[in-house]
Amino acid sequence: MRYEKPQTVADAARLLTAEKGITRVLGGGTDVLVQLKAGMVEPDLIVDIKALPGIRAIVAEAGGFRIGAAVSNAQLGEDAAVRAMWPGVVEAAGLIGSTQVQGRATMAGNLCNASPAGDAVPALVAAGAVARVAGPGAARDVPVEAIPAGPGKTTLKRGEFITSILLPARPAKSGDAYLRFIPRTEMDIAVASAAVSLTLNDHGVITAARVALGAVAPTVRLVDDAAAAIIGTKLHDDALAALAAACSAACAPIDDKRGTIEFRTEVAGVLAKRAARIAYTRAGGQA
């Protein structure tokens, strides 16, 4: 195994492309090192991207924010401006692991780890975030929901890696929220999760919404039916019930050590309702 810490994006892409064996990109390392420890992967090359220009920066862009791929979730949580615009995303990222893990883990890493249960991912999907992908060719922008391909698999091609994630600008009277279910209060992987991002008009009617679910399918799901269930409503009980039903209907989970199909399907709807209420309140709606 080799460890490289390139100074430019081009060098990083070259290293990753040239390596014939197994490669891993090292950002915060909170997934990569666990995989190494467990012997799940024995990479031939690890490329530490933390020295790349701008990779640890949060920059205002086009009314939103570009989050460097090596920005730790702790650093993200300390950014008041991002937190004010996208509280659900920041909270979701802030739920990953312990304080110690927060000091290292990144949203880009959470996305590329491609676990259906990654906490940041549903919130990013609901937010309509866009990942910037570098590689052997020209950089390209990819909606975050198009990055995971299945548990542990991404759509990134050989030599490609994420350099930043753009959280877009948002209209006035918008809010987002993310909730997950875990058996303890901390330190668990989500058994089911839901993120809601929505925008209201001046009368408190939802005009736009995105709803994403985690840990209930092989990848994070963007549930259009769930969004449709609350658009045009003031999030009254029948809208919430329709939202929960649409979410439960969109679930295709598995039975495993963390939860049952029955439980995940039920609780995904419960979490979506609760997240929608928080997002609605954050958007200035009177619940």
Binding site: P183, R184, T185, E186, M187, D188, I189, K257, R258
Partner: peptide, 9 residues
């Protein structure tokens, strides 16, 4: 991670 002993919180 999955053998869940109580944490402080």
């Amino acid at each position: 991670l999955d053998y869940r002993v109580p944490v402080a919180s």
